[in-house]
Simulated scan of single mutants.
Amino acid sequence: MLRGLTILGGCLLLAGCADLKMPQFGKRSAAPQSAISDPLPLPTPELSAPPPKPGATTAEALDTTTPEQRAAVTAAPAAAGGSLGTVVVTLGDPTTPGFWLRSSLVSAPEPGMIKTAGGVTVQVDLMPGEGAAQLSLAAFRAAGLSLTDLPTVEVLKR
């Protein structure tokens, strides 16, 4: 009888594990889950851009923003809000177009800007995120930052 209960209990435990999302050994996901999920809507359409063409591999081909957009986002803003803090930024998904920053400094999408150590400001859409702060390819380029660096930027409300 005790043996039967032990087997039944083990079966119930295993059945409960079926609902857990366990990684499959030997298989790797093509992209992290955050990159697979639908992106959050951007609060400012003028900072968005169309997705890059399939097969794009260079920074120029992946950055689909226009010269006019790049000039507009680096122009002096009318008034900057308060500082949200500073973060070290990594290059975000280069296939996600537009000027954006994902970080844990915000809990909902809102307009903002970054300021580099050299004083360059770039208007961006602030998006909530976890882990390392990620800056879009277009924002990296507009700020004049090297794509291989891990620069520290100040994040401001707009």
Rank of each mutant, 00 (worst) to 15 (best):
A78I: 04
A72I: 02
A75I: 01
S107G: 07
T74I: 06
D63R: 00
V73M: 05
T90A: 15
R70H: 13
T65Q: 04
T86R: 15
A71R: 15
A78V: 05
F99T: 01
R102Y: 14
S104K: 10
Q69T: 02
A80T: 11
L91V: 05
V89W: 07
E110K: 15
A78S: 14
P109S: 02
P77D: 10
P67Q: 08
T96R: 14
E110N: 01
A72P: 00
E68C: 03
L105D: 04
L84W: 13
V73I: 07
A79D: 14
T90C: 08
S107K: 14
L62H: 12
V87S: 01
E68H: 08
M113K: 11
A79Y: 07
I114T: 01
G98W: 06
G82Y: 00
G85A: 10
V73W: 12
L101S: 04
A76Q: 15
A79P: 05
S107C: 00
R102S: 11
G98C: 03
A72D: 09
T74M: 05
L105F: 12
T65R: 11
R102D: 13
S103K: 01
T95Y: 05
P77E: 10
A79S: 14
G112S: 10
E68W: 05
L105Y: 02
V89N: 10
M113S: 14
D63F: 07
S103C: 09
T66S: 15
S104D: 13
T74Y: 08
S107M: 03
D63P: 01
T90Y: 14
V106Y: 09
V89H: 09
L105G: 08
G92V: 02
S104T: 08
A108N: 01
T90E: 15
A71G: 10
V87R: 15
A80K: 04
V106E: 09
W100K: 02
L101K: 00
R70Y: 09
P109H: 11
G112D: 05
D93F: 05
E110V: 11
I114L: 12
L62R: 13
T90G: 14
P111G: 06
T64W: 12
L62F: 15
P94A: 09
V88C: 10
T90P: 00
E68F: 06
Q69P: 01
L105K: 12
D93W: 04
P97D: 08
V88W: 09
T65K: 02
V106C: 08
F99N: 01
A72W: 13
L91W: 03
D63E: 02
A76Y: 06
T66L: 00
L91K: 12
P109Q: 07
R70D: 13
S107N: 11
P67V: 01
I114W: 04
G85F: 14
P111K: 13
A108W: 00
S104R: 14
A80C: 03
T64S: 06
P111V: 07
F99R: 03
T95I: 08
T64M: 08
V106H: 12
S107A: 13
T90M: 11
P94R: 06
A72N: 07
L101M: 03
R102I: 02
P111R: 14
